[in-house]
Design a protein around this nucleic acid. Sequence first.
DNA 1: ACCTGAACACCGTTCAAGT
DNA 2: ACCTGAACACCGTTCAAGT
Lengths: 243, 243
Amino acid sequence: MASETRPSASRRERPAKPALTREGIVKTAVELMRTEGLERTTMRRLAQELDTGAASLYVYVRNTAELHAAMLDELLGTVDLSPSRGRGDWRNGLAQILTSYTEVLFEHPSLARSALVARPSGPCYLALVEALLSLLSEGAVPADRAAWGVDLLLQFATTNAAEHGTREQASTAQEEEEVLAVALRDVSSEDYPHIAAIGADLLSGPGRDRFAWGFDVLINGVLHTPRPDKGQSRRVAEQARGH
Amino acid sequence: MASETRPSASRRERPAKPALTREGIVKTAVELMRTEGLERTTMRRLAQELDTGAASLYVYVRNTAELHAAMLDELLGTVDLSPSRGRGDWRNGLAQILTSYTEVLFEHPSLARSALVARPSGPCYLALVEALLSLLSEGAVPADRAAWGVDLLLQFATTNAAEHGTREQASTAQEEEEVLAVALRDVSSEDYPHIAAIGADLLSGPGRDRFAWGFDVLINGVLHTPRPDKGQSRRVAEQARGH
DNA sequence: ACCTGAACACCGTTCAAGT
DNA sequence: ACCTGAACACCGTTCAAGT
């Protein structure tokens, strides 16, 4: 049955076994994650996809954590940073970039989780930070607050993606959310008066609204909160720079 | 050699194999995590500690995720909620509770990570939420903002614990932080002008100061940011309550 | 230098069989 | 009802041996 289009006995349509490269490994890993999820993107499974043994991967990648970091930076390359060049509406630009960032991670919550632990430092991550800083400076946010604020914004967006997000894991998550909803509804108004009074509003609203509100809270907070330790911190920073 | 104090041949000083209970399993798991870390607190290892087979645990616990959730609630029982009863300084009380929460999770970053995914709903978690809500209401924070603000505060504290935190994993984390520090220092000031200008300040300051500043940002932000969707959200909440 | 097979030391979860 | 051993289907990582 159309056997002349099948060039070899190997799986899929890969015609010949391509030479291993770090980049090829990482790209295959991202593709595998897209189709089967991070859970199934194991060294062994990935090696199988590349028609080799798991041990071969260790020539190019130190361990699983490093692989995940490289995959994350690859993924961050798809974040839309173009709003950082639109003059005028810095606040909206920030929201757009963070929304794009969230959307990218939303499809891979487990990778978002690993981003919380292993701080990325690849080129795409740096470009993202640069874009956020440029918009904050356009908004006249003092540089010292912007330095720490970027972290807060990215932490917020990353956590959001790690918490919610799609994939099969969502079924379990939704189940747990229902357990929590029931627990909140059945709460004794004697033991937990405030919870009982607020009730369902603790969980209400679509994620989009909560994200938008949380983003505004952060921006407004940064605008209203000077860094208290300016003198000391500047000294520390200058020491780190070698002054 | 003092063989009369050794009551049986079983491991440790457990004199007789105690009956399995859910509570006993969870407590043993927490103890095991304290001594060997969450990574080694596996079903098999835990069963070994309880002198039984891994399969027996599945009578009391549905799976590993549920075990982790139960362990987390057990741990949350040690968070100091007493500042919620000190009238007057609500803001400081909030900071104290969140600091205690962070400290508890700090010793177990991997559990903090799982708290980001599997929303807890145990009694100790509810008590924590209640304490935070009571202080926010003392501070005259509008109830609708408090409802969403609690989430933001807990998310912030949990993420902080998941990111930093002690244990052996810290060595890898510190290494990655150094990689990032080098990347930031060597950044091209043409490609990344803002990063180059701010430089080391992006990573400067002790975690304590960043936490305190982040907390202030959140509180100030909540105080300055009304929820935009009041009407619709209240309607949804009332529907959920059955009005 | 790169690649491999085999091994080491583990996992979570299920299930038939026992008590 | 509770507990068990054994099995199933996997893991990450290392290492001696090959090319």
